[in-house]
């Protein structure tokens, strides 16, 4: 430890506080009784858009410089999606896709 215990605790407290404030932000802004119409609409429309963003976020380090930098994740993502469209079994799709990805990064690429 380079820092003192007090300094370290302060860093944790600041990071915890900032993170909580961000998560609480919409609840603090819209404290009134009735939510604005547009916020109700965004609350319903956003999840699908954010899930698409999070999928991109997980794949963001993909580059096309070498097959090993794009093939495992794109193939496993496609297999996860196809499995899910085919059987619509959440556990099968997630664990199937993950096992395929582990095999690809450990044994193939």
């Amino acid at each position: 430890m380079t820092l003192s215990i007090m300094q370290s605790i302060l860093i944790i407290a600041i990071c915890a506080g900032c993170t909580f404030l961000e998560r609480a932000f919409p609840f603090l802004v819209f404290r009134g009784n009735e939510l604005p119409d547009v916020i109700k609409y965004l609350g319903k429309a956003l999840p699908m858009a954010i899930m698409a963003t999070l999928v991109v976020y997980c794949l963001k380090d993909t580059t096309f410089t070498a097959p090993s930098a794009f093939a495992p994740q794109l193939m496993a993502a496609a297999i996860t999606a196809l499995l899910h469209i085919w059987r619509r079994n959440t556990m099968l799709s997630i664990f199937g896709g993950t096992i395929v990805y582990m095999l690809l990064v450990q044994a193939v690429f």
Binding site: P47, A52, C58, Q73, A76, H84, S93, M102
Partner: peptide
């Protein structure tokens, strides 16, 4: 850790399948 990516993909597909309008997924992506 690909399990998290797979979870997000599965949830996205479920939302696309059940939604009246798929435009939000295109906009986000």
């Amino acid at each position: 850790d690909f399990a998290l990516t797979a979870l997000f993909i599965v949830i996205l597909i479920e939302q696309i399948k059940t939604a009246d309008n798929r435009l939000p997924a295109w906009i986000g992506g």
